[in-house]
Design a protein around this nucleic acid. Structure first.
Lengths: 175, 175
DNA sequence: TACCGCATGTAAACGGTTACATGATTAC
DNA sequence: GTAATCATGTAACCGTTTACATGCGGTA
């Protein structure tokens, strides 16, 4: 259901096509919510049926028409109502943590490898976040910067945790 | 698919009933993966069909028979193979962060309320984690302690982040 | 008396991903 | 020449949640 509000929320900021919504969801919102076209387009059709958005078509040559969606008053009200209700708790599926939990008969070397792989992945995500953050900078509303700052902070905390754990496990023998 | 390995992994530690698996998933593994009976029981049946687990029935009076599942050699192999492949990236759905991102026309007071609610929720989770951690203590394998330690560390980092943000937003006017 | 724990399960609905279909334009 | 970008969508499948069904025994 949260994709509904993702769409409404982005349209509240500016009229957009489905394609543009997807881009936002894959960039600035990457760490918060992702959505595929298979979710997005049907969602837009549904919102249109329900009168939460409007649509205007702009034909193009040799390309499907741009369908620009605009939020309606009704859509705005629904969005505001959702924003005001308390946030649901996070739904997290961490393959890494599950593996760590169940890794009781993994060899020390395999375990260390697992931690190092996680470290590399987290560092890569941190780099990607820094890229995004430096790309926006000026005109972005503060609350959107907070979101990437949040994710960045969490990445850093995780890196520190991983380093502490690996140090505690003893000196490196693998690389 | 990860619920498959959650089940296999727990059964690798000790034979269990579906009910007991659910308890583990709701306690120690709460922050990693959750599973409802609607997922768990069909999964056990499927694993049984595939020969990854065995089942022995213990009839009881006035109650459904306890069905104790045990992992087979084949199940152990599958689990080991999964443990050795690199972890998939986290799948996270954070209602709170989405709201924060989209909250550009929320009043400052509403925003502050949102942050405070999040703070309370996180603090509650931290307390729950501390409870769990103090309850286990001695016999628990270290990698399982690491998982709760990880989650605890993340909670603390988030609390600090929230406090920094609220301080930055200016002095409290609400309570 | 009321609720919680024990213990099994099923069925319908839901939300989402993946893969497919189409195809011109532009940048490397 | 190859890949990415623009731009729409559909259909099959998959995994999961929610609600339902049953019901005794112990505790507050």
């Amino acid at each position: 259901m949260s994709h509904r509000y993702l769409v409404l929320g982005l349209l509240a900021q500016a009229p957009m096509t489905g394609y543009e919504i997807k881009k936002h969801a894959s960039c600035a919102l990457r760490s918060v919510a992702n959505a595929s076209y298979g979710t997005l387009y049907p969602m837009l059709h549904q919102l249109l049926d329900e009168g939460a958005v409007q649509m205007e078509e702009y034909p193009q040559n040799h390309r499907p028409a741009r369908k620009v969606y605009t939020i309606t008053e009704r859509g705005k009200q629904e969005l505001a109502a959702w924003l005001h209700e308390p946030a649901q708790s996070d739904q997290i599926r961490r393959d890494f943590l599950l593996k760590l939990f169940l890794a009781h008969d993994l060899s020390p070397d395999d375990l260390r490898l697992m931690l190092q792989q996680r470290r590399a992945a987290t560092e890569a995500e941190l780099a990607a976040l820094r890229e995004i953050q430096s790309a926006v900078a000026c005109g972005t509303p503060p609350n959107q910067l907070w979101v990437s700052d949040y994710t960045l902070t969490m990445c850093q905390a995780e890196l520190e945790w991983l380093d502490r754990l690996m140090a505690q496990m003893g000196p490196d023998r693998l690389e």
